[in-house]
Structure formats: C-alpha cells, structure tokens
Amino acid sequence: MTRAARIVEICVSHRGREGPLLLILHDVQCEFGCVDAEAERVIAHELNLSRAEVHGVVSFYHDFSAEPDPRPCIELCRAEACQARGVEELVASAEAAAGERVRLKTVYCLGLCSVGPAARIGDRLHARLNTAALVKLVQSA
C-alpha cells in the first residue's frame, strides 16, 4: 500500500466523528513520524479542506512535525516546579551526553511536579533525576 493510500485509510477510519482532523494528524504522526506536505495534501483532499487550513493546524501544535526525526527522543521537563528542584543544573551534562545522537526536547510539565526533575521517553516516565541518572538515561536511549 502506498503512503497516500494508507493516509486515506486513516482518514476513512475516523469518518463519522466530529472534528476528526486532530485524530487523523495524531495517527499520521505516530505512523510516519511526521506530517509532511504530501500528507497534508492527502488529508486536505479527504476532509474537503484547503491545504492551508490543514497546514495551519499542523504547524500550530508542538506534537506535529514536518520532517521525521529518527533519533531517540527524551522529553525533559523544565517548567517552574522542576526548576525549583534543580533541573537547570542537569541540562549541560545531559546535552553533552546527548550530542547529535539523542534528541533532548524541552517540555513544560509532565505532571510529576512533586518528584522532579522528571523526563519522559515514549510512555515511560522517570522522576527524581540527578545528573548521573539523567546522563545514564540519555546514554541508554
């Protein structure tokens, strides 16, 4: 099956649901690692929207990306509560350990504000991080 055909299939699977665009974009992002211009074109056609409308939505949300990034990704919370628990002191060593191999992404809040600094890799959460623990996470990612 071509990629376009698969995206059509995703669109069809959400037919009948109210406001399906975000649902479709999540599925496409999850399956292909991005929502690129080609995907936007197919989705726009299926939902009878303009490409600009679809692109506007894709570019608005942090979770959707225009290009795939195959690197492992660690989401590190750097919001106030994790700052209060010293996350900023860990960033330099984590960045050094990550280099170009691992993507270290800043997020604002994982809801683990009483046991920070906290990070997320996929659906796995990690709390009470110190420099050594975070560097280890980065190295094993």
Binding site: C77, A79, E80, A81, C82, Y108, C109, G111, L112, C113, S114
Partner: peptide, 8 residues
C-alpha cells in the same frame, strides 16, 4: 488539559 506546572 492540565498544563500548569505544579499541578497534577
């Protein structure tokens, strides 16, 4: 959509 830091 509980995005506030410090809330859980």
């Amino acid at each position: 959509d509980e995005g506030d830091s410090g809330t859980f």
